[in-house]
Design a protein around this nucleic acid. Structure first.
Lengths: 352, 352
DNA sequence: CGATTCCATGGAATCGATTCCAAGCCATCG
DNA sequence: CGATGGCTTGGAATCGATTCCATGGAATCG
């Protein structure tokens, strides 16, 4: 009933536990005879080594932890998939934790991972240098940041260079005649939230678009906040003709809200989202996205982590992003916004 | 540098390891004085108990395994999320494995979970009674099937009753004048593949629809097979006017293929999918789905697993499904199929 | 042919936390 | 006043696999 131990295997094979261990872990100091008998005995008993005991003795567990922000976000679901596959190829199993965009739940999971003595951790960090992240670094646990970073914490990272993609997006919108672009920002507590907003602001300036601060609304990377953001953008005296969302879930929330109000995307208003996920091309209308390779990000993260575990200090990786234009933004801006607004009696900062 | 052990804590607190252990695990046989000193010392050293050592001694790891078929399938991503939350509430961490719809990878993960001595496993099984599943049962490891089952393996399960939803779907299609419904089946190696096909066949008979076996094409629950299925359905001499896919990913593949061919969904052909995921309502056109509650399924699975771990033999749970009609199927069938077909010279089994 | 090396092997220690068991202490009771 | 009982405590064994160290036998070399 109780699972077989290596001693049971050894007894059945007529050797000592030491020899059985050597055979089963591929130590060359074993005779062919012993090898045959032990292997046969192990198969006979359906022996599965107790990973805990093994990990206790060697000081490594052959497992890594992956902490993502939200598994239901397709971007992170794909990331989890890629990381898991890449880790498996390198002989590691992945323990997946889901912070659910909450710093508290992130800490709880990191504690668990530390307790389980994972050999390394890949984390898309919440907030700024929470206690658990500090612990991770202080203990010298190999760590890699993915997608996001934490300022002041010196850890290798794999991030997306939002600049190119956002510049393309803004250029694209400007080229179609948009002057006022509503921006649904990520939370300032996430590095991606801050960086993308900064990139967006720079791009606006480059193209001489309206820099009205009222056009920037902050969300939390989840769908509901996208809806809320659209609501407040539409209340502006001078609402935007295009909306740019800092991630796919907020874009979806925005789309829902626009649909509920009967505002036609791709006709009355343009919508562009950071991230480009499979579903975008099937939506009504197909959504313009800013693409970056999840596959590349996941594989790079595992590669960096393996390097850190090997004692190296790998350089950070920055992946490119680029615009994938689709129907949601591929139209010329209408002469007048369809949303009822008072005539712009004092058109401010609109260069002719 | 090396992480602090309970002996370090005990030394700093001036007590024995035994007492330190008792304090830290909440054993009441401790004096307030000892409690205070040990707790202070543990905080001082930032002590994290080695979960492996603890699990080795107690014969439980406070962790469960969850093996899903494909994390990139939104249905399973949601399931993973729900199970994880419910397990966390019960004090368990979840080790997520992804079989990627491959029996081999499933076995590899189950082996890992067995080696790590998880306290229980929730699995959406691939194939029929693979060796690892047999091992699981033979070892008496608490196991619960979710979404799918394996015939002949007596394990509590949480499944969806496909019958009601499919009957509604077929009635809905019949009501709109469809006689020939193409069915994209799941693989016969999955219980859901078989059951849904059987339910569909029954529903066809009930409504007197065309039971042409050529209208049934098998896929593998992944997107590419949905595209392939549509391709072969359209080659029929007498192609269907409606398409029913046994899961969301195959439906997406089907939609892509139809769009590529310029066939208008919701006008030229109806599309209905088993599963109803968030994105369906945003698609072009919104897709009719057969809904079942992932949340309920995940929570029930955890509840059942806890019961099995407590030595009970809970009854299986069967959750309802129901149709959510949307634009992709909400139209009357056109008088003649738009796809060019030879005139039906010998219309077979079409009751007037 | 004796001595040195090489190789396979077993005994025992080890990893870190838990827990059984025995012992010590204080208080209460007969 | 001695004894019994209730508490707290420490020593030591334990979980299962790995690994250091020593040993015995075979093989090789001078």
């Amino acid at each position: 009933m109780d699972p077989a131990t290596i001693r049971d295997v050894a007894a059945l094979a007529g050797v000592s536990a030491a020899t059985a261990s050597r055979v089963l872990s591929g130590n060359p100091a074993t005779s062919p005879a012993a090898r045959a008998r032990v292997e046969h005995a192990a198969r006979e008993l359906d022996f599965r080594p107790n990973a805990q005991a093994r990990a206790l003795r060697r000081t490594r567990s052959d497992s890594i932890g992956l902490l993502v922000s939200d598994v239901r976000n397709p971007f992170f679901a794909d990331l989890a998939h890629t990381v898991e596959q890449a880790a498996l190829e390198a002989g590691y199993v992945t323990l997946l934790g889901n912070a659910n965009e909450s710093e508290q739940q992130q800490d709880r999971y990191l504690d668990t991972l530390i307790s389980r003595r994972v050999d390394g951790v890949i984390v898309a960090p919440q907030g700024d240098g929470s206690s658990s992240i500090a612990t991770l670094v202080a203990r010298g646990i190999p760590t890699v940041f993915v997608d996001r970073t934490v300022p002041g914490v010196d850890v290798p990272s794999v991030t997306t260079d939002s600049d190119a993609g956002l510049r393309e997006a803004v250029a694209h919108l400007a080229g179609h005649g948009h002057r006022r672009v509503g921006y649904i920002a990520g939370p300032p507590t996430a590095s991606t939230g801050r960086e993308r907003l900064a990139a967006h602001t720079r791009a606006l300036a480059e193209h001489g678009l309206d820099a009205d601060p009222a056009l920037v609304v902050s969300g939390d990377f989840q769908a509901a906040s996208g809806s809320a953001a659209v609501r407040s953008l539409l209340e502006l005296a001078h609402p935007p003709t295009a909306i740019l969302a800092a991630d796919s879930l907020m874009a979806v929330g925005a789309v829902r809200q626009l649909q509920e109000r009967g505002i036609r995307i791709g006709v009355d208003v343009a919508v562009v989202a950071f991230d480009d996920i499979e579903w975008f091309s099937l939506m009504n209308p197909p959504l313009t996205g800013i693409a970056h390779s999840v596959e590349a990000m996941g594989r790079a993260a595992v590669r960096l982590l393996l390097a850190v575990m090997a004692g190296e200090r790998p350089d950070p990786v920055r992946l490119p992003s680029s615009l994938v234009p689709r129907a949601s933004s591929d139209f010329a801006v209408p002469a007048r916004p369809v949303v009822a607004v008072p005539p712009p009696s004092t058109p401010r900062e609109q260069p002719s």
